[in-house]
Amino acid sequence: MKNKKLISIILTILTIIALTACGNNEKATALSDEKTPTTANADETSETEVTDMIGRKVTVNPGSYKKVVCIGAGALRMYSYIGDVSLLSGVEDIDNTSLSERPQMFDGVARPYVIANEEVFSQLPSCGVGGPNAQAAEAEKILSCKPDIVISEYEDADKEDALQEQLNVPVITLKTGPMGVFDDAFFESMNLLGEIFEKEDKAESLVNYITKEKEDITKRTSDIKEEEKPSVYICGLGNWGTTNHLMTAQNYVSFKVANVKNVVTGLEADGVQEIESEKFVSLGADTDIMFIDAAAVKNIKPLYEEDPSMFDTMKAWKEGNVYLEMAFNAYYTNYETALINTWYIAKTVYPDKFEDIDITQKTNEVTKAFLGKEMAKEIFSKPASFGGYQKIDTNSFFK
């Protein structure tokens, strides 16, 4: 009897404990439900409004995006600097080198973002043709890629709004300014991408790196007296298909950053433009150093074959002080290349100030900062790089 009573008492106690625990769990669950928002509410509270680079207000949900499409010249390049390329759900044909039918005018040029991500891009469906002749977004192709956000460099606000309404996903427009890689607008575009994709640290790191690089170059050259500076001419700037030895700029950004004396002055406007042949001839006697952007070689060569005397009035050509910089404008600006070019120009014009700089090592450093990979070998091996940065042999280069 005693054992039975003892067992009964124990069972009663256990039942009471179990019931008490269940009650507490129900209360805890209820409290938890009151304090924790639903998934929908959590999503709503994480939404924020950003202003894109052409002033449009767009509501985004930072860090939530799983399918990204980039459209327009330079958009995919800039996204590649900050975003995760594995999130891309489509790519323009011009950036998919596995396609046989696509714009191929830049295939021989070093576009580092394509080189670095060629395998990823080749696996993606088309979100449009892309390229210089594609002046409008292809909404149907974009829709077929099922993006949940679009990064664009089409700068017509009304068209961007219309595209956003048609796609029913945020369309974020990026933009840079006249100073290119050194422009505040480029920094703002990087930071905007960092905010949207929760890569703020990466964006800040890149902006800080570029800023320090610029400061280093400028500081090394800031104390050079004007009368001690050689006069320098840069040509081959502008559009890939039209540039030649007459295409130049009196406000060339790399010259400004490196305190280089530009022999071209007195033009009515800034920016890349073609000067008259007479102007080119008149500059010749004062030009100590000449830089040719690799983009122009394909156009200059037939001109030189037709008239081998075309550079005879150029002092730099006659004295063999002609140098090749890498093409930095191919489906818009290669920003890392523009930075490397600035180092190369500064080192060439002021060698004593940059004895510690090896341009191949600097190329690897810069591409790693931008794209996470050392890429000097790949860049210099592209056909339109002609082996990389070099002093041109004026007796044979264009023959």
Rank of each mutant, 00 (worst) to 15 (best):
V281P: 00
T20A: 07
S254A: 14
T48C: 07
T51R: 08
K175S: 12
C70G: 00
N168M: 10
M53N: 09
K199C: 00
N364Y: 09
P383T: 15
T97G: 01
F197M: 07
L206T: 12
G128P: 05
E47T: 12
P62M: 06
P308R: 13
L324K: 06
T15Q: 07
V349G: 04
A338C: 14
I224M: 06
A384T: 13
V69W: 04
V181P: 00
T242L: 14
K391Q: 12
N208Q: 11
Y332W: 10
E227Q: 00
T15A: 14
D95Q: 10
T394S: 11
T38M: 14
G271M: 03
D95I: 02
F182S: 03
D358H: 08
I359W: 04
D93T: 08
G83Q: 00
W343P: 04
D158Q: 07
I54W: 10
E92Q: 15
G63D: 03
Q123D: 12
D107H: 09
E227P: 00
A137T: 08
T394D: 11
S277I: 02
L19M: 08
V281L: 04
V68Q: 01
A269N: 13
N329T: 13
V129N: 06
K301G: 12
P112F: 08
Y350C: 03
W343V: 04
Y65L: 03
A285N: 04
L163F: 08
L11A: 15
E119Q: 02
P132V: 15
A40C: 05
D286N: 14
V91L: 05
N24R: 01
A42D: 10
L192T: 04
M310A: 08
C235R: 00
N133E: 09
G131T: 14
F328V: 00
K229W: 02
I54S: 07
K353A: 13
G74M: 09
I82A: 01
Q273R: 01
D183M: 11
S100C: 09
S282G: 01
L19P: 03
S381H: 10
L206H: 07
D148R: 07
K315H: 04
K35L: 15
D107Q: 10
L31N: 12
